[in-house]
């Protein structure tokens, strides 16, 4: 684990695109909050905040806006891993004595790290705006959705890693992921719903991931503070994460570098 941490530190910290991607994520996230605030009755990020940015719904709403960050950071993961293939540094690190399991651990750690960074940004934004705009009696009950947000990031990065290890090129990997999400999975979902069982499409990977974070409450009137969030999405997403990592492990184990 110590080697993985050092490897990540030396590789990522001086990588300019890493900081650019983080900045982009932050900018898009703040823009999203601003737009959401303005269009739902607040006065931007000024004194009067939108009800959507008040506790308890702020957590779910910020997580929903923050999902775009996961996509930006998954592109960063694509670049980091594909660099290792295209520049031959993965091969070099294996020649130097890193096991393939260690390299997979390093990539998985990168995914977790990126998810954690997104989580931190959303958490601090939630604390800041929540404290600023909520009444002292606003509950913290929906803070648990942050766990779902983190799991969504980890699962998405696991899927991204699997796609990269399959095709080993950045553009095809991004195209494959985008096509799967936008076209293939919805079509497959329609077919499964029609021929197998209605509603089964919600168990497909990206559908299950998107179900983790409910859409923002356009009104908080009549919405319970303890909005029941099903654990099924948790389990399904965890299962897919495991499958993607298992697939990545098998792919890397038997791959010529």
């Amino acid at each position: 684990m110590k080697k993985i941490l050092w490897l990540t530190y030396y590789k990522v910290i001086p990588y300019r695109i890493f900081w650019i991607s983080l900045s982009l994520f932050l900018a898009v996230f703040l823009l999203g909050i601003g737009v959401m605030s303005v269009f739902t009755g607040g006065a931007g990020m000024g004194a009067t905040l939108s009800p959507l940015l008040q506790r308890p719904y702020i957590w779910g709403n910020l997580c929903w806006v923050g999902q775009v960050g996961h996509f930006i950071l998954s592109f960063l993961l694509v670049m980091l891993v594909v660099n290792d293939y295209e520049q031959g540094t993965l091969r070099k690190q294996v020649m130097d004595g890193a096991s393939r399991n260690m390299m997979l651990g390093h990539y998985a750690f990168l995914g977790v790290l990126l998810s954690f960074m997104a989580l931190t940004v959303v958490l601090f934004a939630g604390l800041f705006f929540g404290e600023k705009g909520s009444s002292p009696f606003g509950t913290w009950v929906q803070l648990g959705i942050m766990g779902r947000f983190f799991l969504e990031g980890v699962s998405l990065h696991a899927a991204t890693l699997f796609a990269i290890l399959l095709v080993r090129k950045s553009v095809p990997a991004i195209l494959f992921l985008s096509l799967w999400q936008v076209c293939l999975e919805p079509l497959l979902g329609l077919a499964l719903n029609h021929y197998v069982h209605d509603g089964i499409s919600s168990y497909l990977p990206f559908h299950a991931l998107s179900n983790l974070i409910p859409a923002p409450h356009l009104t908080f009137v009549g919405v319970s503070d303890s909005d029941p969030l099903s654990w099924i999405e948790w389990l399904v997403s965890l299962g897919y994460t495991g499958i993607f990592y298992l697939g990545s492990w098998l792919r890397l184990k038997y791959q010529d570098l």
């Binding site: 001086p14 660099n83 091969r91 130097d96 004595g97 890193a98």
Partner: peptide, 24 residues
Amino acid sequence: LEKPTFYPWLQAEANLQLTAVIRG
């Protein structure tokens, strides 16, 4: 093997540091 493979955005020293980390 074949050609040297290092990270272009790292200094020579930092690239060797990565090898050092892996080799302990």
